[in-house]
Amino acid sequence: MESVNIEKLIEKYLEGNTSLQEETILKNYFNKGIVAPNLQEYQPLFTYYVTAKNERYSKTIELSPKKIKRNYTWLSIAASIALLVSVFIGKQQYELYQQKQEAERLFAELSKGLRLISTNLKKGEQAVATLYTLENTVNKIVK
């Protein structure tokens, strides 16, 4: 009795006129096991439909695209270039700084030396000045 109904449903199914409920009846019938001999050729079809729905997407979905991943490589390249450039420039800057330090040190030494000379010169000048006054007084007295 059931197989007669199923046959009718299959006719309807092939015409594309079955409802979703009727299709579920068909799927259940063919997946339960005991199938009437004259309907056996349909069994693979309906078992396939059920098994095909069991296939799952097993990977995780990422919302950040691959394009950004590629940007990371570019970012790392950019970072390494920046590092290289900064080391290079840093070295130059350091050398410049050292030269400046050296120059300042030299300048300080030089000015110290010059100051020494100038104070000593002043001493000499004073001595000469006293000589002049001495000479003047001597001249006055002699005259």
């Binding site: 092939l14 015409e15 594309g16 050729e41 079809l45």
Partner: peptide
């Protein structure tokens, strides 16, 4: 519906 019917009939015939 027509496409569905055609597809189902094709599969049935092959089966």
């Amino acid at each position: 519906r027509v496409a569905l019917s055609r597809a189902r009939k094709t599969i049935r015939e092959e089966l």
